[in-house]
């Protein structure tokens, strides 16, 4: 450090010619900065913001066949969707899926992280076991869990022995259901099967986050609490878990945006399901656009998905930017 400072005073001192030289070099560097960053800014402007605008434009058009038709349709496509049995089911499923998925991720994430944080032997082995599903594709997870939770095989072979027989993702029952619009609102039993698969794959993320959080809490905090006679359980409940709250916020936001746009897991594992009990906007958008050629309807679904994600992400981005400066 001292050396650096010495160098600075040495080189900054001698001649008056330096400022001019520096200025010329700065402009050259400025150009280079511009050359480095401009392509990416252009890409993002066109392919993110421009294309979102284009999708928005399509969603307001009459393009619901193979032939593009950009005549203005107003909100017709949105009106159609909100009155559509399938889309109403999608809204219900997404809501239930998101709530269950986030809840389960937080609980298992915290639980496993606390277990791993007990200075145990073989921690890295256990950690790797809980993390590895994240390296898998949702498609692989879907294929495997489709079999594990197949009503006539898999987990059910054990459950039947103890008198339980679940129909998993083929179940069309809606728990706590009541009529809402065209659909029965409630918890579709079939969604639970998908949540299990999703949690298996993604828990590692929340474990990693909570573990990093736990490691960030200085030992003195625990020591001090122990000195005051708090039990280990009390320390976790009263001190550690509240300190992890910012992590929970991050986990909720990341998991929410994953679950709101989920497509591949459900597409590979169950598809829409009977009565659309496991359908989600991602699957509907894909099928109606690329299998049915209802481009304007598909675009409208995409825009609704985007808005639902933005509700979580925009405040998060703004607040993490503020936190930085």
């Amino acid at each position: 450090m001292e050396q650096v400072i010495a160098k600075e005073t040495q080189t900054a001192g001698p001649s008056i010619g330096i400022p001019r030289k520096k200025k010329r070099k700065l402009t050259k560097d400025h150009l280079l900065v511009l050359a480095f960053i401009t392509p990416s800014i252009l890409f993002i402007t066109v392919f993110v913001y421009g294309f979102i605008g284009w999708t928005g434009y399509v969603s307001l058009s009459n393009w619901n066949s193979l032939v593009p038709d950009f005549s203005y349709a107003g909100l017709k496509n949105y009106q159609f969707l909100f009155n559509d049995f399938r889309f109403q089911a999608d809204l219900r499923n997404t809501l239930i899926f998101t709530v269950l998925f986030i809840g389960a991720s937080i609980v298992t994430g915290q639980f496993l992280a606390v277990l791993l944080d007990q200075k145990i032997k073989g921690e890295s082995l256990f950690r790797n076991i809980f993390f590895f599903p994240m390296a898998l594709s949702f498609v692989v997870t879907g294929v495997v869990w489709q079999w594990l939770l197949n009503p006539s095989t898999g987990v059910n072979l054990f459950m039947k022995k103890i008198g339980l027989d679940s129909r998993w993702y083929t179940d069309t029952n809606i728990l706590a259901g009541f009529q809402w619009g065209k659909i029965e609102f409630g918890i579709p039993v079939a969604i639970i099967a998908v949540v299990i698969a999703a949690v298996w794959q993604m828990t590692g993320f929340s474990v990693a986050m909570y573990l990093a959080g736990l490691r960030g809490i200085p030992d003195e905090v625990r020591e001090a609490a122990r000195m005051d006679g708090a039990s280990e359980f009390q320390i976790y409940r009263k001190i550690i878990l509240p300190l992890l709250r910012p992590i929970t916020v991050s986990v909720v936001i990341i998991m929410a945006h994953i679950s709101l746009k989920i497509f591949d897991l459900i597409y590979a594992m169950t598809g829409s399901g009977a009565n659309f009990v496991t359908d989600v906007p991602g699957v509907y958008m894909f099928e109606t656009t690329f299998r049915g050629n209802y481009y304007a309807n598909g675009a409208a679904i995409a825009i609704i998905m985007l808005i639902s994600v933005a509700i979580f992400i925009v405040p998060y981005l703004i607040s993490s930017r503020k936190g930085e400066s």
Partner: peptide, 27 residues
């Protein structure tokens, strides 16, 4: 080499990683 507005540019770039890709797929 932060220029004026670099942090805003960064945030605007970052948004791109959260969007559902369905919303850019048709174009």
């Amino acid at each position: 080499w932060k220029f004026k507005g670099a942090d805003t540019v960064f945030t605007l770039i970052l948004f791109g990683m959260f969007i559902p890709y369905q919303s850019i797929l048709i174009p």
